[in-house]
């Protein structure tokens, strides 16, 4: 015997109306970020003192282009999900909460998108 109403049991979505999707996406992006951030740190050590020409040579290498794009996607998706939980925990006014949650999503897409554009521009630019 469960504690849920029949409707809740049919929908399988719980009180947040989205089931386990948020939780699951947070874990998936976390798992992806383990190898990706270790790779990025390793690369960043050697990129530290480099000039633009060396950066272009690095980012133009297909493996580096791909991994940088994947790293950025994982970081911004994971960050958006994580900051959402922080906002939901600390911001109680409904208006302020919705505003911050929308802002969080928009900024994550905007900044993540601009990172990808920046990567591709140098990687494929003349």
């Amino acid at each position: 015997m469960g504690m849920q109403s029949d409707l809740a049991r049919v929908r399988h979505l719980g009180s947040a109306k989205e089931g386990t999707h948020h939780w699951w996406a947070q874990r998936l992006t976390a798992i992806a970020l383990v190898p990706l951030s270790l790779w990025f740190i390793w690369q960043a050590i050697s990129l530290g003192g480099l000039d633009w020409v060396a950066y272009k040579a690095w980012i133009s290498h297909p493996a580096n282009t791909l991994l940088m794009v994947m790293f950025v996607v994982a970081v911004f998706h994971h960050m958006q999900l994580g900051l959402q939980v922080v906002v939901e925990d600390y911001v109680h006014g409904e208006g302020a909460k919705i505003t911050l949650l929308v802002l969080n999503k928009l900024l994550a897409v905007l900044l993540g998108g601009s990172c990808i554009l920046s990567i591709l521009k140098v990687a494929f630019g003349g």
């Binding site: 980012i59 960050m79 900044l111 920046s118």
Partner: peptide, 22 residues
């Protein structure tokens, strides 16, 4: 987690600067 989100802003700046030019 929140600190790394600030780090993501720095990463955005760094990548954008590279796209902007030498």
């Amino acid at each position: 987690g929140v600190g790394l989100s600030v780090g993501a802003l720095v990463l955005t700046y760094w990548l954008a600067a590279a796209a902007y030019g030498p």
